[in-house]
């Protein structure tokens, strides 16, 4: 690794996954490396620490010597190695801006909920709208359904794109929707149509949030569901149907938006602290 570079790390502990990144921090930051690990009933803090060590080792970096700031976000406050913690909307907004610098709305579509965030030109949170408590608007819901259908989570996007007559389940309650899915299977509805129906059901919630927020384009879809082609397609389809002509974009690293945002805010805070110290020394 180049010793002249400044490196920061971000660690995002979510409901289902821990995501970690190393960033090369500058005016034009670069994503150096990333890793995502499913928690699988383990202690999330330990998963996070293992992931940090893995990334450092792989990139031949030392935590003490090379990383100027390790920032956590999400539920990452308990990660022992962190230097600071950033709240998740702040991190996802910054991550969304890293993907699409001109973004004015970031939609965080994670394992537990969907949150649409309106941001200003500097990436600061202006307003937000969030799904209700029910799991029917969450990534975890897609995981449950895909498990029931015997699919791997990374297959569902492509399978959804094969649908021609989607079967949309109840959009009110995850339990009712699961019952609908079971019923669809017994009625012989094809797997692509069931999956597309689930995507449309969640997309319907996303589009309602965007409308309520009076969102502005471009809208960046981030979080785990932002990497699901079928989900992104469903959001675009419903937004168009509702005559909300938004520019909806995503990024192949969408799941890392929180970790990227935290790493970037970490770098910003590091230099602010240096500035403060310098000012104090002058006095």
């Amino acid at each position: 690794m180049n010793s002249d570079q400044i490196y920061t790390m971000g660690i995002d502990v979510g409901g289902s996954y821990v995501k970690g990144v190393i960033m090369q921090y500058s005016d034009s930051p670069v994503l150096v490396d990333k890793k995502c690990e499913k928690i699988r009933r383990r202690n999330p803090s330990e998963v996070a620490v293992d992931l940090i060590d893995f990334l450092l080792k792989k990139n031949n970096l030392s935590y003490e010597k090379d990383i100027v700031y390790l920032a956590s976000t999400g539920e990452g406050e308990m990660v022992s190695k962190k230097r600071g913690h950033f709240y998740s909307m702040t991190s996802h907004s910054r991550g969304g801006k890293f993907f699409v610098p001109e973004a004015r709305t970031v939609v965080d579509m994670g394992g537990l909920y969907v949150r649409a965030i309106k941001i200003d030109e500097r990436g600061r949170v202006m307003d937000y709208k969030m799904t209700g408590q029910c799991a029917s608007g969450s990534g975890q819901f897609i995981e449950n359904i895909s498990r029931y259908l015997g699919l791997a989570i990374d297959e569902v996007g492509d399978i959804s794109m094969q649908s021609d007559t989607p079967e949309v389940p109840s959009g009110i309650c995850a339990v009712l929707a699961e019952t609908d899915v079971i019923n669809s299977v017994s009625r012989g509805i094809s797997t692509p149509d069931i999956i597309k129906g689930i995507h449309l059901s969640i997309a319907n919630r996303v589009v309602r949030l965007i409308a309520k927020l009076k969102a502005e384009s471009p809208i960046v879809l981030v979080g785990g569901m932002g990497m699901n082609k079928g989900m992104v397609d469903a959001v675009r389809e419903l937004a168009d149907e509702n005559r909300n002509h938004f520019e909806i974009v995503t990024h192949p690293d969408a799941i890392y938006s929180g970790a990227i945002g935290a790493a970037l805010w970490g770098g910003y805070r590091h230099f602010k602290l240096i500035e403060k110290e310098a000012a104090l020394n002058l006095v």
Partner: peptide, 23 residues
């Protein structure tokens, strides 16, 4: 009473308030 759900929502709310006050 779902603690983590409420915590998530309140944190988002406080985060927005903080940012608005900064602005």
């Amino acid at each position: 009473f779902s603690y983590s759900n409420i915590k998530n929502r309140l944190e988002s709310f406080f985060e927005m308030l903080e940012q608005r006050l900064l602005i």
